[in-house]
Design a protein around this nucleic acid. Sequence first.
DNA 1: GGCGGAAAGTTGTCCGACAACCTGTTAGTG
DNA 2: CACTAACAGGTTGTCGGACAACTTTCCGCC
Lengths: 245, 245
Amino acid sequence: MSTTPSLRHRLAQELRDRIRSGELAPGDKLPSEPELAHGRGVARSSMRAAITVLEEEGLIRRRQGSGTYVTYRPAVENDLSRNFGVGAMIAATGLGPGTAEETCELEPAPPAVAAALDVPVGTPLTALRRVRTADGRRVVVATDWCRAEHLSPDELRDMGQGSVYTALAEKGLAVDHGVASLTPENADAEIALSLDVARGALILTIDQVDSTAEGVPVLVSREHHLADAFSFTVVRQGPGSEGAS
Amino acid sequence: MSTTPSLRHRLAQELRDRIRSGELAPGDKLPSEPELAHGRGVARSSMRAAITVLEEEGLIRRRQGSGTYVTYRPAVENDLSRNFGVGAMIAATGLGPGTAEETCELEPAPPAVAAALDVPVGTPLTALRRVRTADGRRVVVATDWCRAEHLSPDELRDMGQGSVYTALAEKGLAVDHGVASLTPENADAEIALSLDVARGALILTIDQVDSTAEGVPVLVSREHHLADAFSFTVVRQGPGSEGAS
DNA sequence: GGCGGAAAGTTGTCCGACAACCTGTTAGTG
DNA sequence: CACTAACAGGTTGTCGGACAACTTTCCGCC
């Protein structure tokens, strides 16, 4: 897992840091490609590839004959498409993440989860149920399911504080991407009790299926977020390059 | 606006189409870079730059010494981070978008909108209020605000069916990206009336600020979506390359 | 002061070469 | 026969240089 990324990705990361640190502010013009390349002792084509990565991420914009400029894209505090896991989301709001309740045991697969993980309904799955807190306040109740042969309840319990993602990664099942589905809800009795709020409180439920790079679904989660504790944001790409469909 | 995009972007679009059309299925190996380049009569470096674009989008994955492969990323039907505008979202679900009510007039800027557009509170703004339908059913009530000197109510009315985005683009104010904020709500009396549902129905409100490539905010919108009419999904990038924070 | 054109600077594309790496084959060994 | 190790071929990664296309600046000219 400590394989060094390719040169262009390392160069891209350096530039990303320089932008995020504020050394290169929005609207600023980057040094020319030959300059950047010579400064780091790499070929211009390599530096160019790195710049292409950032361009695709939308951090910079190239203009032929003129130069390369940092875009005015805002740094969103809590971007749904980037922050992974409840802990990261809470941390992104500047609050301290914690866990109030935690149970981890084998549980027969509910239909929706079974379908996502491609197992028969009722198959025993490792289920991790947690109530997450932000600065002590209960804000999320979440359940994670994964196949028992991938991660047993015992292994997960031993993991302790570590994220489920790191636990899976150590088993060679690194999560590459996930698809999240958002649904507004009113808190039912169970959720209200777990989060210590009145029944009917506004909840945003996130159902997510995480898969490996090979497309194998390894983790299903259902998170009930207290609506007034978070603000969920997404950066949407403009309709520029895309053709009609 | 008809400036041809750079060669690598055109090549990237061709490859994207071949993947989306199913000609290249997930897991398939792409022809080698020299092969692809020669087939299109371009230099390998140009084709390589195009492939880098797709790699950054997550559509393909390169493996040194082995080849380039199409990833197993799912094609999500209604991706919040890609579909722009209510019409596109409705169309993405396979339903026919329509408009039930439409009013367009000057209106003093509410505080939140004024702040986003960087004008004093109460400044007259062009406000477009629409009730959108999917296969005839009322599903969204949306209000768009923009500065009157950018787009007057008359101009917008003349536009007719055309999207607000195209109207702005023709004025040289093409929208490059937007930041959306999601909030669950229960329908109040006004929304309930507009959407013809009971009070308290579950609503997902999307507040969005759209800006040009220069970072100038040009359009603010507030959309109340009927929760059970849509499923909102987001593809989330895995925690792979990102360091901890 | 205003205008036109040359000049310098920057990104876009092309070409050829070699290094690093993966994969399947083959020859050798037990 | 099973297993291992070396080999050859193919593929991506990086390098260096060159020229084209384009933008911006500046200088001389009117």
